[in-house]
Structures are given as structure tokens and as C-alpha cells.
Computed example of a mutant assay.
Amino acid sequence: MTLPVTMLSGVDEGSGVPKYRQIADQLTRLIEDLPPGVRLPSEPAISRHLGVSRNTAIQALHELQRRGLAVRRQGRGTFTAERHRAVRSLAPGRLPSFSEDLRRGGHTTAEEMVGFERAPLPAEPAARLGVDLDTIAWRVERVIRCDDAPVVHVLSWLPVELYPSLDPVAISKSSLYEHLESGPGAGRPHSAEEEWTAVAADEHVARLLGLPVPAPVMSCRRTAVLADGRPAEHSVSALAGGRFAIAVRISPSSWVDGVAPVLQVGSA
């Protein structure tokens, strides 16, 4: 099966978005529901059909490979890739970490540091952490990569009072929670409350996750606490839905007085 090049529409010269990115975004939408192994239009075909340079067409297909959506087969062309979603589960007795669950599933991970600083807390993180507005905290922004594809964007706020020092290099080499567990400070969070919603990624998050704009993502707001109940982290994560799945196990052991827990779905 081959995706017809005629399904691609023209590029917008005045949009400010690079032509190769526009083509890659179109292809991303076209192949979203296609099975693996579908041949994509060749560079010469894209170049002729859209009136762009051969190099622009090559960059567009390379961008698809970078997103983990296509593979290049020498002498045969570019094809839709086999896509295995990373699955995050709720392991009993341990607050899950995205990176740890990915590695447990047989994937390689890396935490790419986007921003790392001490900064005054905005209103929402301050309220969730139970401290005054503008209290100084660690602002840790990172992208978690799975098998070299970006899958999660995370912005975390952690009180400096609980964590006097953090090492961005150590976090990049493992994960934030592993660093909190082994490094100085109050330790790894013990439990958390989370709120999940489907949202449209803003331009900043979409760019970091290699997604078209607008693109749907799953947003997770988490407030994590220590074993003694002190709030230790507030984070907002954006998960690329086509690359990440959430598995939740509900068992009688989590019931209270014989009543199963209720999963509430609604708008925030």
C-alpha cells in the first residue's frame, strides 16, 4: 500500500512555519490511523507535487523519522513505523515515575532538561503545595524521551525548604524521583493526587513533543506528598496520546468498606 502524494496540499509561504515542518505535519495527520508498512511518497514525488526543493522534501521525511512515525529502508523508500505505545502502570506500594515505568517495559529513556532554576511559585503550585505565593521553589522543566522519541513534557515545582539542592545532571541521567530518592533533601514522594484531562497542546509543548499545532495531549496535574503528608511536588505533565497509555488496576484491596473506588470523569 502506498500513500498517494496527491493527498498532500500546498504549503503556506507566509505562515512563518518552515515548509518541511508543514509537510511533516500534514503527513503526521494522514498516517495517524494507518497500519505499519505503508509506503510514503518519495522525496522527488513530494518535491514535484508541492513545488518545493528536494532538500525540503528530504527534511520532511527525516522529521517523521525523528517523531518515530516512519522508518527508512535502504533502496526501498520510507514507510510508516511500527508504533508500540509506552504503558505507565500503577505499581503497588510505589508512586510511579514515568521514566521508571518506561524502562520496566523494556524501553530506553532519557530526561532532556529544558529549564532548571529557582523561581517564585505561581498561584496554582503555591496553593497546591500549601505555601505562600512567590515562595522560592525549584522549577524543573524536562522532556522524557522513550526509545529516543519525546513522549512526556513535565513541569515540576519543588519547595527549596524540602530540597535545598538538586542536580540537573543527575536528574538527566536517571529521573527526578530517583534523584530525590538517593540525593539530599526530604526524599522521594510517597503518594499523590492526580487530575487528568484532554487538552490541546500549546505551541511550546507541541514543539518539544514533535507534534503538530494544535495537537491533543493528555494533561496530568499531580500533587505529590511525602510519607508524613508534607506536599513535596506539584507538576503538570503533557503526554503524547498516540505514544503513551495509562494502565490502572482496580482490585478489592483498594475498596473501602466493600465499596469499589469511583473513577470520576468531568471537566475541570
Score class of each variant (00 low, 15 high):
A110R: 01
S99F: 01
S97G: 06
G105Q: 14
E117S: 07
D101E: 07
G106M: 06
S89E: 13
P120D: 07
G93C: 00
P92S: 05
M113D: 07
D101G: 05
R103H: 15
S97A: 03
L121M: 08
L90V: 12
L90G: 09
P96G: 00
S97V: 01
M113A: 09
M113Q: 08
E117W: 15
S99G: 02
S99R: 00
R118D: 03
E100D: 13
R88E: 07
E112R: 06
D101I: 04
L121I: 11
R104W: 12
G115C: 14
R118Y: 01
G115K: 13
E112N: 10
M113T: 13
E112F: 09
S89G: 15
E117N: 04
F116R: 04
S97H: 05
R118Q: 04
D101W: 15
F116G: 08
V114N: 02
P122D: 04
V114Q: 03
E100M: 10
P92Y: 07
R94P: 11
T108V: 09
A91K: 07
E100A: 14
A110C: 10
P120Q: 08
P122F: 08
T109W: 02
A110E: 02
G106K: 06
T109Y: 00
F116S: 09
P120T: 02
F116L: 02
A91N: 13
V114G: 00
